[in-house]
Amino acid sequence: MSINLNRFNRVNRKKIFNRIERTKKSAIPQAPKRPPLLHPQFDISALTEIFLSKLSASSSTYQSVDCLSLVPQLVLQYAEKYNTNKTLVTNLDPFLNSDEPPWDWPNALSLSTPPATGNEAIGLSYASTAIAETGSLVLSASKQNPTTVNFLTDHHIIILNEQDIVPNIESMWKRLSLSAGNMPRAINIITGPSRTADIEQTIQLGAHGPRSLHLLLLTQPSPY
């Protein structure tokens, strides 16, 4: 839907650009060359280790899993640990290899499909990549990973393939290979649970988003 601001925008845009161009910063028709930038380097052989130590520093927890079929049981255990109700929202099922369903959901879990409504205690998502430098998990909005699951649930569980850990922020962008016109609506770089220090500078987890963040690190390649 186009809105009726076009003329207003044209006039203002022109004014702003005139002011910018009046200074030494003239508009160059061709792309200027950005100076090359340095990226921090990390020991490639120790990526998992670095990643997990940063992840723990962000108040997240993790456990290694060697088979996807274990996931439902671990989700249930997690719910029991936090003593929450057993409601789970996830959209991963349709994306798993259908020839060979990797998991069965136990009856104890009550499953719903996204978008999350705020009534589900646990969200389960899949991170396409993770950053060792910061201990972050990266989730792109898609049919498989709707953004509401990352923010409206009380506890967030994320699955990650170990080989998807990249060294630094720049290598993560490269891995996602993004370009204008083909952007996911939202990309969330998630580093720990939601937190605030707005009252007396005391850190409190679970401000608006998840109160806890748990990683299931798949040590065997998954069928995604």
């Binding site: 709707p146 204008a180 609506r185």
Partner: peptide, 19 residues
């Protein structure tokens, strides 16, 4: 080192998006 959430917003949701 980085805040809990660093998010990139790039437009309205697509046909495939659920939210």
């Amino acid at each position: 080192p980085i805040t809990s959430y660093t998010s990139l917003f790039s437009g309205p949701s697509g046909i495939e998006d659920l939210d």
